[in-house]
């Protein structure tokens, strides 16, 4: 067998059970298996200056992600995709409450990147009912900014969510967002601003984005789902979005775009979020995450 370098790399990755379920680009930027700890995933804290009271309420509600064995009251620990632990993001038990986990990086080349991860979601199982419409949404986002020497000084924030339910209606639709709230200064030093990009308004349906995911038949059993999202940092455009067996048309997709900010050059943040549709905690679980790039 005659293998070139890329063929050899691909063969080695496919022989590795942990990586074989991913299709990474040549360079793996991060491979986060939560059996090794939090892997740099932390809570998204809102901006503030002088007082924590200046933090927008949408951010003030956020709390720390957990390492979870998907512990259930009725059959014990579910376990993660291939080990004991998954990253858990939990909302508070108040309709519309959100929580976000974030990983903060920078990029060294403006080119194609690929985010792949496995996820599942459930509400807190405090009733003996299916509860399939208690989680409002789960989703992910990038928070990106061009380099300090680039001509196109932009901050770009691609957002995608799975709107599972809204006001009790089972929606099961992928959505995107191209607008954030007004960017407002915080404090008195003219150094910090804030905006709420996860505000409930301005989500738009992804064309053809209705998808029925496996939810299972009681409120504690879960099944893991695969997502792949390709993005080009050079053109700042999404090029591929897939969940399980479905690949979605991105012709109508767009991102939040706002002027570059003074301290965020080459930023490459990625985040996962969850939102509840009832006064019940909503849980997003992720295991694992592979971020790769073509460089």
């Amino acid at each position: 067998m005659d293998l070139d370098r890329s063929g050899l790399v691909q063969a080695l990755r496919q022989a590795d059970p942990a990586l074989s379920r991913f299709d990474p680009l040549p360079r793996i930027i991060a491979f986060d298996d939560f059996d090794r700890g939090f892997c740099g995933w932390t809570q998204l804290v809102g901006n503030y200056e002088h007082s924590l009271d200046s933090m927008l309420p949408g951010y003030a509600q956020h709390s720390q992600a957990m390492l979870s064995t998907l512990s259930t009251w009725d059959f014990g620990s579910h376990g993660s995709f291939d080990g004991s632990y998954a990253l858990k993001v939990a909302s508070k038990p108040r309709v519309g409450a959100q929580n976000v986990a974030i990983k903060r990086l920078t990029f060294r080349k403006r080119g194609p990147i690929r985010l792949e991860f496995y996820f599942t979601f459930k509400p807190e199982a405090n009733e003996l009912r299916l509860l399939e419409t208690d989680v409002r949404s789960i989703g992910f986002l990038y928070d990106l900014q061009s380099g300090d020497s680039d001509a196109d000084g932009l901050r770009v924030m691609p957002h995608i969510r799975f709107l599972n339910a809204h006001d009790g209606q089972h929606m099961q639709t992928w959505q995107f967002k191209r607008r954030t709230t007004e960017v407002k200064p915080i404090g008195t030093e003219n150094k910090t601003v804030t905006h709420y990009h996860l505000a409930p308004q301005d989500w738009e349906d992804l064309p053809g984005g209705h998808q029925k995911l496996c939810y299972n038949e009681i409120p504690t059993k879960v099944n893991w789902h695969y997502v792949r999202f390709d993005y080009d940092l050079e053109t700042m455009r999404a090029t591929h979005f897939q969940c399980n067996d479905r690949v979605f048309d991105l012709a109508g997709f767009d991102s939040i775009k706002i002027p570059a900010m003074r301290n965020l050059w080459c930023m490459l943040n990625l985040a996962f979020f969850v939102e509840t549709d009832t006064d019940k905690r909503a849980f997003l679980y992720v295991d694992s995450v592979c971020l790769s790039g073509d460089f």
């Binding site: 957990m66 390492l67 939990a90």
Partner: peptide
Amino acid sequence: TEPYEAGW
């Protein structure tokens, strides 16, 4: 406080 899982 909110429930926190830390079985590890």
